[in-house]
C-alpha cells in the first residue's frame, strides 16, 4: 500500500542554515528554505554549485556539517540510516544519469523500491515485517507505472539496451512507483535532445497534475523551469497547456532557486528571476533564451 498523500500545505522539506564542505570547498553554505505539499522548487546553478548535494542532503544521503534538515516534519540531521529508510519510502528521487541497477531488468528496477522499502513491506504485511509485498500487487504497480512513462514494452530489457531518454523515464518510473509525497529530480533533461527533454518535462507535469506531489527539480535549462511554472498537463487531451492560474498563484506554488558556490544566490518567482540584476543569475535566463 502506498503511503497516504500529504495534506495540502503540509511541510515536506525544511532546511535551516544548512552548511556542508567537501575538503574545505563549500558545497552548501547556510542554505535555508521550506517546501510544502503541492509546491515546486526549480533549482538552477552552474556545475559544482551544490544542486545535487542539496537533493542528497534532503534525503539524508549526505550529512551536513551544520544546520538542521527536516523531512516530513521529522529532523533527519542526525538520524540513523535505518530510521531514514522509513522516511525515504515517502520520497522518490531521479538521479542525474538515472542510476538504474545495470544487472537488473527494467521490471526488476522499477519493482525494487516496492520489494525493498522496509516501510512498504510492513504496510503490505502488517504482521509480517521483512516479508515481500505480494508478487501480483508489485507486478501490477510496475506495469501501471511503466505505462505512465510510456515504456510498456521494456519489462524484460536491461538498462543498457535502452536509450538515454528511455533510461531517464525508467528512473522516473522507479521514483514514482511508490506514489511518493516528495519527488526530487536531478537534471532530468541533461544531455537529452529537445524532443526527449520535453517528453520528460511533460511526464513531470503529468505526475504533478495527477498527484499534486511536492517537487524539487534541478536543471540547467531555463525552459524546463518555465514550462513547469506556467504549464499543466491536460489529462483529457494528453497535451500540455498554459495554466490559467494567475502569476501570483503560480509564484506561491512554484519558486526558482539559483545556486552559486553552495549558496542560494536567488529565491523567488519567475517574474522576480526575470527582473534580477545579478549577472550570475541572469546567465541562466540568457542560456534559456539563447
Amino acid at each position: 500500500m502506498p503511503p497516504e498523500p500529504e495534506s495540502p500545505r503540509r511541510e515536506v522539506v525544511r532546511f535551516e542554515e544548512v552548511s556542508l564542505h567537501f575538503g574545505g570547498t563549500p558545497a552548501l553554505d547556510r542554505v535555508s528554505f521550506e517546501l510544502r505539499a503541492g509546491e515546486t522548487r526549480i533549482v538552477f546553478g552552474a556545475a559544482g554549485s551544490g544542486k545535487t548535494t542539496l537533493l542528497k542532503t534532503a534525503l539524508g544521503l549526505i550529512k551536513p556539517d551544520s544546520g538542521r534538515i527536516f523531512l516530513f516534519g521529522a529532523e533527519i540531521t542526525d538520524m540513523s540510516e535505518q530510521e531514514l529508510f522509513d522516511l525515504r519510502a515517502r520520497a522518490g528521487i531521479l538521479f542525474q544519469e538515472g542510476a538504474l541497477f545495470d544487472s537488473l531488468t527494467i521490471e526488476e528496477n522499477v519493482a525494487y523500491p516496492l520489494l525493498n522499502q522496509p516501510a512498504l513491506r510492513e504496510a503490505a504485511h502488517p504482521n509480517g515485517a521483512g516479508r515481500l509485498a505480494p508478487a501480483q500487487t508489485v507486478n501490477e504497480r510496475v506495469r501501471e507505472t511503466l505505462h505512465f512513462v510510456e515504456l510498456d514494452q521494456t519489462l524484460e530489457k536491461l538498462p543498457s539496451e535502452l536509450s538515454g531518454g528511455m533510461r531517464r523515464r525508467v528512473g522516473i518510473a522507479r521514483a514514482l512507483v511508490t506514489e511518493p509525497a516528495l519527488l526530487l529530480y536531478d537534471s532530468p533533461t541533461a544531455g537529452l535532445d529537445p524532443i526527449t527533454a520535453n517528453t520528460i518535462i511533460s511526464l513531470i507535469l503529468k505526475e504533478r497534475e495527477l498527484r499534486n506531489t511536492a517537487t524539487i527539480l534541478v536543471t540547467h535549462r531555463y525552459l524546463d523551469g518555465h514550462l513547469i511554472a506556467n504549464f499543466r498537463y491536460n489529462p483529457s487531451s494528453g497535451a500540455l497547456e498554459r495554466t490559467s492560474r494567475t502569476a501570483e498563484a503560480a509564484s506561491v506554488t512554484t519558486k526558482f532557486f539559483v545556486m552559486k558556490e553552495g549558496q542560494l544566490a536567488f529565491q523567488g518567482s519567475e517574474a522576480e528571476l526575470q527582473a534580477a540584476s545579478d549577472p550570475y543569475v541572469r546567465k541562466f535566463l540568457r542560456h534559456g533564451s539563447s
Binding site: L59, Q96, R174
Partner: peptide, 14 residues
C-alpha cells in the same frame, strides 16, 4: 560512480 549505491540507499536498502 554511477550513483547506484546512493540509489540503493534512497530505495530502502543498506
Amino acid at each position: 560512480v554511477t550513483e547506484q549505491i546512493d540509489a540503493m540507499r534512497a530505495l530502502g536498502t543498506d
